[in-house]
Computed example of a mutant assay.
Amino acid sequence: MTTRIYVLNGPNLNLLGVREPAIYGSETLEDLRARTGKAAAAHGLEIDFRQSNIEGELVNWVQEARGKAKGIIINAGAYTHTSVAILDALQAAELPVIEVHLSNIFRRDQFRQHSYVSLAATGVICGLGGKGYELAIEAMANILATRKA
């Protein structure tokens, strides 16, 4: 039986590859899905990879993950800095959470340096581009292996 991880992506991540490639890189969301899926398979994990521009849909998916997944990897995009609703859902899910950002949010606008998601996250990976998703999978695999031991 494979262990499922939800990989949730927030607003504007559907524009990866065309939106500000100097900041977010040239990889598309589909490239990230493939990269993340390959890393997950190497660790015996299955991913459910999703993207939405709608805050409530992300909240619904986090709530769904509580009963269907063992962990959540989330790049909440701009909702990182604004969404108490996503924070509340992540805390209620009672699952390990890895927060991912393609860019280093601490080298950006001051408003981007605050993260509500971090308050629920086990760990945060930022500034490493698409490699951050692979590292998040590795971290999640380690967290889950530790919990089983």
Rank of each mutant, 00 (worst) to 15 (best):
M1Q: 14
Y6K: 15
V7G: 13
V7N: 11
V7M: 09
L8R: 06
P11L: 09
E20H: 03
A22H: 08
A22Q: 13
A22C: 04
I23N: 03
T28S: 13
D31A: 05
D31Q: 02
A34C: 08
R35E: 10
T36N: 09
G37M: 07
A40R: 06
A40Y: 04
A42W: 00
G44N: 11
F49C: 14
Q51V: 14
S52V: 12
N53C: 10
L58W: 02
W61F: 10
W61A: 14
V62P: 08
Q63I: 10
E64C: 11
A65G: 14
G67L: 14
K68D: 15
K70S: 15
I74C: 08
A76L: 08
A76G: 11
I86N: 08
L90K: 00
I98V: 14
V100W: 00
S103H: 01
S103Q: 03
F111L: 11
F111W: 05
H114E: 04
Y116M: 12
S118Y: 00
S118Q: 02
A120V: 04
T122F: 09
G123S: 10
I125F: 07
I125D: 07
G129D: 03
G130S: 07
G130H: 01
G132S: 05
E134C: 12
A139Q: 07
M140W: 01
A141N: 09
N142S: 12
N142H: 04
T146M: 11
